[in-house]
Amino acid sequence: MSEHAAEYCKPELMACCGAREIKDHNLVLVGTGFPTMSANIARYTHAPHARLMQESGVYDAQPKRPALSVGDPCLNPGAAMIGGLVEIMGMFLQAGWVDIGFLSGSQVDKFGNINTTVIGDYAQPKSRLPGSGGANPIGSLAKKILIIALHDTRRLIERVDFITTPGYIDGPGARERWGLPADTGPEVIITNKAVMRFDKSTGEAYLESYHPDTSVEEVVRLTPWKLNVADDVHETEPPRVEEIRALREILDPNRMIRLYEGRGYV
């Protein structure tokens, strides 16, 4: 039994939840923020042979500070390989090498579909968002997708306004019908309240664990679809001492991760 950190912020807990999904030797396609923190926590604890890559073209970067974008200058010196999008998204992701992909979005639904394109009508948008970028191919082709989301009834939604990135689309069998590779798709939604895991037989996310300061009731209330609850639902394991040590002593000594608290991850 590991010892747990006495004090931590919610984004740190979420980063640890992500890290625990990563196995040793996994290839992880990351963006910035949580994904990088999670993948690196894993590397410094239970998965020393996990390797990171960024879609912009970088494999196994050795940044001296947290990268603020996937094109960040700090990703260049020390990397094992630098190519471009064709190498990472084509040769590695499309060719089936990537084990883990992280995604987030302005809307996430119960099937793990993600919207980063538009709020409201596509032709007359209420709010125009950035678009797919790498999200759609990552969600289509990485073996395991970890979704990071804010837990409220605006971000989590019964049905997204626009499927930028397919989860289980409209239920079981849909990915297969569309020809997406077997054994791919969303694994969990990690929010600031809970970890929701996907039931592959229904394609829906169910409540696996609730974070220490909340409850099954609160999570169910904040989830806009009828949330199934695991028989063995339990409190999320708090950050372990070694996880927090990797985060604060090596990866993020200035605790830039606290920026996420300002974005509502509390």
């Binding site: 191919p137 082709l141 499927i163 397919p166 997406l180 590779p181």
Partner: peptide, 13 residues
């Protein structure tokens, strides 16, 4: 040929 976009609304716009 590409293996992405299938099943998404990117095909509907």
């Amino acid at each position: 040929p590409v293996k992405d976009m299938a099943g998404s609304d990117l095909l509907n716009v």
